[in-house]
Write a protein that binds this DNA or RNA. Structure first.
Lengths: 264, 264
DNA sequence: CGCGAGATTGACTCGGGTCAATAGTAGTGG
DNA sequence: CCACTACTATTGACCCGAGTCAATCTCGCG
């Protein structure tokens, strides 16, 4: 459970492999066989880095699933992201030279160590490297902007729907099935990530299941209607309330088409 | 109203001035008198850049106030930030080479143009420059993380309170009064930024005013009790310790000190 | 001066948080 | 192997914070 790391792994990656992992066009034609980055393994539950810890290295996820969290003054966790293969960790430590968030392995993980000093030293020799870093950081910035937009503007159902779609797309990009996958995080963590309670997450998943958008069995999710999930804003009234709304329901139904989403 | 720019300004800044503006230790001792960056003026309401526009330059705010916004599929604005003196604009364009957000001047502004190509070219000569950029981008990343945390976890009152404190601190850092200042944005823009409606913002400000935390007169805000604003928290004290709190709830309620915030 | 954008305030509604009970699942050790 | 425990998920009942709708009010500006 310590923030330290265990070094039984003997794996190393060269620069090109790292660039490929980041989905960055490795226009680097240099011979990089001598430039190796060490891998490190973390077991489920282990912390990669903690808040306030001195920053010196970036991490790139080679395999496994993690979460990054902020801890507020009362010890409550706020999940910021769920990094997986190809994502970079630790960037928030550059500014103050101390990590601003905590990263925890949600499964056994294999990470690539990128000592920040080594990176900047490399940048001095290979100028295209800094563009690579700018790109990664800018991408992360855009991702967080989208997150802010979502938290600021979307309903609970829309957040959960987008979360599922986002997961599906990331799994697809990693070569896994985008139709059937396992959540690596608890309802509580999803709720924290989406600014909702775990009950709301659970209820929303159940509602999606009832309507046939997805199938849910604990952490196993099947995506049945990705298009509906993508464009979903609000859910139609549930069956329990339907009776009470019966009077107004007719006009509402006639006005609206059979669409799942009530576009505004 | 076009995204273009008017070039009547003849002002230029050298690298050191730029670094100072960014609050970055300009450890650069090089002679930079020949390295000049042009200023550009924007009038209230003008767009600095729009979403999707080809990216080629970063902007540093020398004076004035702006907002950056995302536009969703229905044309709704989501305010992302309120840049002011010393802030950098356009970083989100690096990744895709197209700006991901739109920047609008809320007052007459003076911006410094930093052509991205020029910056990377400079980085090749002066390695410390890239650290500067990493720092700026990392800082922005951390700021957005804090924003996500706020949107995900805080009540409306706490968000407004933190917004005011944040503004006060930024004004102080710029040499203005942190006790009395003018908002440059509408209630609607504040609401969008904080994930609230304009009515809630207005009501919350009125409530703070009634309680004596601040004074409000349209866009003129006076900060009366910054400490109370800073410690104004969300309503539920905890989620993980809910059970224990239940027992002590009675005494906590009866002990109800003069604190402004109803902690439970 | 009057117009229109912005701000304030009230009344009402409802989405989603809170509390609570139950059940499924995983790990542990006898 | 099964019981025991702790964690996770589901579901229901209730309710409150904040959104919605709407009626003024204010102020800056042409």
């Amino acid at each position: 459970m310590e923030a330290g790391r265990q070094r039984q792994g003997r794996l190393w990656s060269n620069l090109k492999e790292v660039c490929d992992l980041l989905h960055i066009p490795a226009a680097v034609s240099m011979n990089t066989e001598e430039l190796l980055f060490q891998h490190v393994q973390f077991k489920t539950g282990q912390r990669v880095h903690t808040i306030g810890q001195a920053f010196d290295t970036l991490y790139i996820v080679n395999s496994g699933f993690l979460k990054t969290v902020l801890i507020d003054e009362f010890g409550n966790e706020q999940v910021l992201s769920f990094p997986m293969k190809g994502d970079m960790l630790g960037v928030d430590g550059i500014h103050t030279r101390h990590y601003a968030s905590e990263a925890v392995a949600l499964s056994d993980c294999d990470l690539i160590l990128v000592p920040f000093k080594k990176l900047t030293a490399l940048g001095r020799v290979h100028a295209e490297l800094e563009n690579l870093m700018y790109g990664v950081m800018s991408r992360e910035l855009v991702r967080e902007q989208a997150m802010i937009g979502m938290l600021g503007a979307l309903s609970a159902e829309a957040r959960v729907a987008r979360f599922l779609i986002s997961l599906a797309e990331r799994f697809a990009a990693m070569g896994y099935s985008s139709k059937l996958f396992n959540l690596r995080m608890t309802r509580h963590e999803i709720g924290s990530y989406l600014g909702l309670t775990l009950e709301t997450v659970s209820r929303t998943l159940s509602a999606f299941n009832e309507i046939g958008l997805i199938t849910v069995d604990q952490r196993t999710i099947g995506i049945k209607d990705p298009e509906a999930l993508k464009t979903l804003r609000r859910l139609p009234p549930s069956r329990s309330r339907a009776k009470q709304n019966a009077k107004h329901k007719a006009e509402a139904d006639s006005a609206g088409d059979g669409q799942v989403l009530a576009t505004a």
